[in-house]
Amino acid sequence: MSADLSKPLLKVDNINKQFGSTVACDDISFELWPGEILGIVGESGSGKTTLLRSIAGLIEPDSGSISYAGDGELVEVDKLPEPALRQLQRTEWAFVHQHPRDGLRMNVSAGANIGERLMANQWRHYANIRAEALKWLEAVEIDASRIDDLPRTFSGGMQQRLQIARNLVTRPKLVFMDEPTGGLDVSVQARLLDLVRGLVRDLGLSAIIVTHDLAVARLLSTRMMVMRKGEVIEQGLTDQILEDPQAPYSQLLVSSVLQV
């Protein structure tokens, strides 16, 4: 990974988003630097998912700007024409949804799910696409024999791992994850977290991970933001937030988790 470490990868400025009279994001600004894994924590309704979806270009914020530095200068993503944004979303960016069915094509095989981003990026050699799909199945610990099976025949954990493979196959630089372990059993969660952690490290990814689960943030993130009622009430390194939470709500959040 030849990331330029002297510049932020992503710059979020003054994002506001309201749904009716409910403020989901209240003037949120931050930077994400190459190699950083930012955990956004907070209870449901805190606005964290809305923030993530706004940044990733899945919904439009009411105001504010999002800039991304792929190879060169920071580019205002929210001002990009839609084709350019889509190109970004299927190459350098990736979005892992909480529910695999939102991120997978359930009516095509696992191999085709992984291959889709490659084919969208002009891969036109079947055997190569298939070889890449097999490599990624292995990387996410799904048996190669399942390559032609439909995702609906997979367990929830396998579907989520398939979604991750489908997203990472183009070696994105920035991955957005929305409660990636949300719908999974505890035992399956641990395995998925290990996997994500390993991939993030091996691929040198930067990521923004939204979770209500502090254990997920502890394991995956280098830095954390705590959100409540649409506001960022505290941010810092993961160990700072977990060991020295300062805002009353952060203290409540941390103290309500069983200490390991």
């Binding site: 094509r105 095509v108 191999g111 085709a112 084919m119 969208a120 036109r124």
Partner: peptide, 12 residues
Amino acid sequence: GLMHVKLYEDIS
């Protein structure tokens, strides 16, 4: 890309 997904499925 989706068009080729269909053809990929055919071959697989």
